[in-house]
Amino acid sequence: MTTPDDADQTAGDEHSPAMIRADLLAALALIILAVAMLYGSWTMDRLELRRIQPLTAPGLVPGLLSAALLVCGLILAIRSMRLPAPGGWTSLGAAITSGPARRVGVVLLLALTYTLGLVGLLPFWLATGLFVFAFILVFETWLAEPRRSLLQSAPWAIGIAVATAAIVTFVFERAFLVRLP
């Protein structure tokens, strides 16, 4: 179910030109995945040496599933190609390079730097503090409308960063005895 403010900002509604074209890309990705998995299932060890009933081979269900996905992917692709979508590619391109997409990109960049880069490199509490601080600052002083001034935002960002780092580390390492990464 979409919320009212969702509908006008996403790539589009059910049958908007952009969505129809996006479906085609998704269908292609699904078909590739299905074919790859079908190949994987077909060539999977059928355990003939262990003399199992041939129909209980491990590749049976993955094979059936990839066949089903292949059918669904083809239907999606054909449907997408048959529906008229004037200006679909341009509006899809616009959706991918739009402001909302940039915000998503920034969130991902911050999140991935934190999880794949900082965690493990720095102590967990420091990585967490840095991430929270950067996240709040970026979205309050740069990617916000209206923007806040650095002076307004920074104390909050520091406060929340320190509190989160301290509480999470304390709760998990002391109370739950989890060795954080």
Binding site: V107, T115, T128, F131, V132, F135, I160
Partner: peptide, 12 residues
């Protein structure tokens, strides 16, 4: 903005 940063830490 403030909430989601903390929520992501909890996700991790």
């Amino acid at each position: 903005e403030r909430l989601m940063a903390v929520v992501y830490v909890l996700c991790v």
